[in-house]
Design a binder for these strands. Structure first.
Lengths: 211, 211
DNA sequence: TTCATATCTTGACCTAAATCAATTATTTCT
DNA sequence: AGAAATAATTGATTTAGGTCAAGATATGAA
């Protein structure tokens, strides 16, 4: 994938159809590739870039003083992350690690901020994007505090069901378990139990939601 | 408080200093007062208003199928809530209840949306506001999944310490406990334990953070 | 002020899910 | 292909914090 294609897919996600921003965006962004396991930034790092995922997957996570970790989100193809640096200048409030070999578009947040200010169209797109993100996090807060592990796992699967009840597990299970706030052991046990209860069927990396 | 003062304090929070929006905003908003315990809206309700708290406190919460409840946020004087309806049209994704007798400014979201579209200044303010909210929720997700009840309670107190180590508990303890995702019993026990350990001292509604 | 209602505290008990430990599978690298 | 490393499963054990119950305080209405 070349830079032009990258920018086009970024604009497509923002739902901006004409090409007049291509040159502008080209000047404030660059392609970067990261190998699986590479850290992009850690919480507290100074940094100025927001990212758009062209290929691969990046885990956004937080760690506490005891070394425990929670995955806030896994950004995959077509998703933005760290866009918060547009407004909380200077330091990243989360950490990010590539969990697959990934190709990313790194966008300079200061200059992107100016673009947003100059173009109400961008501002509205970002507002819509932030609203979705707020909704996602609100739901996550709810699940983590009042839904049990089984409900959270079913929630995860249901959100990925496109209507046919078939969900392909593309990420390592330990990443999924961390993203629903559950230990890998518990994840494994619940999956087994759901299968025994007849709620799902498991064939390799494909899970079918029954009933 | 009259309508003009209400609008002025709303604009002050948005950090907009001139008065040119006063008339516009007047046309799309109204003062409403709610008694303690009154529901403003429930999750799933159709609704078009976002709110600004002039006086009192409003609990924003979510409930699951088993009737368990988590407080997402308690909006107090000078805070906006339900601003998400600006972008997720039609239905509220959370519920809201006045937990004190409250005076609110209800703002029509459709017409506010148009104002934001017309005035990049508004758009940027809302983006900044959303960014803060995203940060708050991200921190909350982290606390709920990897911090224990004691750390969450200390986090709550520390965020309210303005530097002198003195925190006044203005809200009912059961509201605070729900907002940190803990049962009232556990809340009570941890407070006692912290006091015994010498980490805090409690004098009525005032808690002093020692160390 | 007094009665009624709601909130808070404390104790006893229980349970969901984490942790620890040991295999077993699956990737990845040479 | 084979070895080494990483991920996933399963069992045994522990524990943080929820629930239930009872009593103590506090709040508010008449």
């Amino acid at each position: 994938m070349n830079k032009k294609e990258a920018l086009e897919s970024f604009l497509a996600v923002l739902d901006i159809k004409d090409d007049r921003f291509l040159k502008d965006l080209n000047a404030i962004s660059m392609l970067v590739s990261k190998r699986k396991g590479e850290i992009l930034f850690l919480e507290g790092d100074k940094g100025e870039d927001l990212y758009f995922v062209l290929k691969g997957a990046v885990k956004i996570f937080k760690t506490n003083s005891e070394g425990k970790e929670i995955t806030i989100n896994i950004a995959q193809e077509g998703e933005l992350f760290a866009e918060i640096v547009l407004f909380l200048k200077n330091t990243y409030p989360v950490s990010a690690m590539a969990i697959e070999n990934s190709l990313l578009l790194a966008i300079d947040s200061k200059r992107m901020f100016d673009k947003i200010k100059e173009n109400p169209e961008f501002a509205m797109k970002f507002l819509g994007l932030f609203a979705k993100r707020l909704n996602y996090l609100t739901e996550k807060v709810k699940e983590l505090s009042i839904d049990d592990a089984k409900e959270r796992l079913l929630g995860y699967l249901n959100r990925r069901d496109k209507g046919d009840g078939v969900v392909e597990i593309k990420l390592p299970k330990k990443e999924i378990s961390s993203s629903i706030g559950v230990s890998p052991e518990t994840f494994s046990r619940i999956l087994k139990k759901l299968s025994e209860e007849g709620a799902i069927s498991i064939e390799g990396k494909v899970i079918k939601l029954l009933k």
